[in-house]
Structures are given as C-alpha cells and as structure tokens.
C-alpha cells in the first residue's frame, strides 16, 4: 500500500484537523449565558428532603406519570414508586431534578427522554431504557433489555447486570456502564460519549462508529466495521477507576485488563478513499 495516503493525511489536507477533535468528546462547553440555566425556568422547585411514595399496582402508565408531575409541582423531591409491574413508559419526559426510585421492574422506554433526575430501579428494565436522555443518572440493579441508552446525549446510565444488543446505538454523549455482558452491535454508529462493559461484548462491537470510546473488560466476539483497538492511557485508567468505583462496579483486579475501542475514522470521508478501500462501506 505504498503511496496510499493515510486517513490522517487526507483529513489534514481537507482541513479537518483530527487532532483537535481528539478528547473533545468529553469536553463540556459552558457558555456564559447558559451558565445560570441549570434548571429550566418553568421547572418546579422541588426539595430532595420531601419524600413520598406511590403504589402503582392498579394505576396505568399515564396515571403514574401524571401523579409524578403533580407531586413534583407540590415540591416533592424524592419519590418512590412501588409495584411498577413492568409497565411501559414510566417516568418519561422528566426535565427536572428529582430522586426517583422504582421498587420493581419496568417495561419498554423506562425513564426515557429525561433531563436531570436521578433514577434508581430495583429490578429489571425492558427495551430502550434511558433512550435520548440528556442529563441525570439512571441506575438499574438487575438486567436491561436491548437498545439500552439509545441515542442518549448525556448523563450516566448504569446497569449492574447484563444488557441486550444494540446498547448505546447512535449514542451522542454521556456514559453507559454495564456491569455484565452486552449483546451484538453495541455502540452502533456511536458519535460521542463513553461506554464501559465490564463483561463480554457480542459481535460487531462499535460498528460504523464516528467517534467516542468503548471500554470492554471481558472478551470481544468481534469488532464491527471501522472500530479499532487503541491504547489504554493513564487518563483512561483514572477515569475508569473513578467511574466504576462511583457505581461500585470496580473489578477486584483493577482496570488494566480493559480493551479500549475507538473509531478508525475510515468512514469519515469515504468519497476520498482509494477505490481499494471501498469495501468498508458496502
């Protein structure tokens, strides 16, 4: 392949300056005018010390969500939902700070479309938990279904157990931490953010990822198109140790055995690739 330019050479020629992009993934830019807007102006003022409980046993999803909103408007900052019984779409669309605790398992789209609350789920969740979340934390004590954290943009999404396939698909920021294994096509078309899998990863890990980082503690069945291993740096180790300690998932042998996967950047501008490299994009 002598004479064939590397992707980096080409991106320099095009003025893309990839070195400036490295590390930008995790940077958060605060603009002065946004700095004071940590809460939406219309968001209810809640007090974390005011705690209440709901028994969702005989309620529909709509009733539970309406009740959550009503309680937030009354100023309750800590809400426990008992007997969620696997209902779909519970706790979605909360754009406010809140401590939300589910004493049981949730169905599809559990606490999706959220911006701010801290959620703890003492049970399992179905598909697309935490999809499109922008900020806050979600901690799941047991296993989660597929498309865990789909298209999420920020916040921490943690599952102590194993998750299904397509974890972190279209991920645009934030952190996903999986205590167990993850299925096929995890990190598919990942754009930014970090994903940590303490167990094994299924096939096509990180397929077509644009950017972002995936850390895997166990075996990787195979890597997807344009996902490449990278060297684990001291910064990575420090970050992994801090994050995994925070959620009590740090393995006893430390974090040195983690494999780091990043984008090979071959798909960034494929129209400029040499014809022989085209097989990538089929």
């Amino acid at each position: 392949m002598a004479g064939v330019k590397s992707q980096d050479d080409r991106s320099y020629e095009m003025g893309l300056h990839t070195e400036q992009l490295a590390g930008r993934t995790q940077q958060i830019f605060f603009r002065p005018e946004e700095e004071e807007r940590f809460l939406y102006p219309w968001a209810p003022d809640v007090d974390y010390n005011r705690r209440t409980e709901i028994d969702a046993d005989t309620m529909t999803s709509t009733e539970v969500n309406a009740k959550l909103r009503a309680l937030m408007n009354e100023g309750y900052g800590s809400i426990v939902v008992r007997n969620p019984r696997g209902k779909h779409s519970l706790g979605v669309g909360i754009l406010n700070r809140l401590n939300l605790i589910f004493e049981g398992s949730l169905g599809y789209f559990a606490v999706g479309l959220i911006d701010g609350p801290n959620v703890r789920i003492h049970g399992r969740v179905g598909w697309s938990c935490g999809e499109n979340m922008m900020a806050g934390t979600i901690l799941i004590e047991k296993n989660a279904g597929s498309t865990f954290g789909a298209a999420m943009r920020g916040g921490d999404l943690v599952c102590r157990g194993s998750v299904g396939s397509r974890t972190g698909i279209d991920m645009k920021g934030g952190t996903i931490i999986v205590g167990g294994d993850t299925g096929a096509f995890s990190g598919f078309m990942m754009q930014r953010g970090r994903m940590v899998v303490c167990g094994n990863a299924g096939k096509n890990l990180g397929d077509s990822m644009y950017d972002g980082t995936i850390y895997v503690g166990g075996e990787i069945r195979d890597l997807g198109v344009d996902a490449v291993p990278a060297e684990l740096t001291d910064l990575d180790r420090a970050w992994l140790t801090r994050k995994l300690t925070q959620y009590e998932l740090l393995p006893t042998r430390g974090v040195d055995h983690f494999t780091k996967i990043v984008a090979g950047k071959q798909l960034w501008n494929y129209d400029n690739l040499e014809p022989t490299e085209k097989k990538l994009i089929l």
């Binding site: 991106s11 095009m14 003025g15 893309l16 990839t18 992009l21 999803s61 779909h88 779409s89 979605v92 169905g107 599809y108 789209f109 999706g112 479309l113 598909w127 697309s128 999809e131 499109n132 498309t147 789909a150 298209a151 397509r166 698909i169 279209d170 598919f188 078309m189 754009q191 644009y210 950017d211 798909l267 960034w268 501008n269 494929y270 129209d271």
Partner: peptide, 28 residues
C-alpha cells in the same frame, strides 16, 4: 459529529424496530 465528516444517517430507529414497538414508542 466531527466537523467535515460525510454523515450517513441510520435508517432504523434506535429504540424501536417494528410496528408493535412503534406503538409503545408513540405512547411514550
């Protein structure tokens, strides 16, 4: 996205696949 990449979007929604998931998504 990184500046200047050729963006090729996904065609499948990340959080639902078929019509039954779509129904739950619309409810969500």
């Amino acid at each position: 996205l990184p500046v200047g990449v050729d963006q090729r979007s996904t065609v499948r929604h990340p959080d639902f696949l078929g019509a039954d998931d779509l129904q739950v998504k619309i409810e969500e």
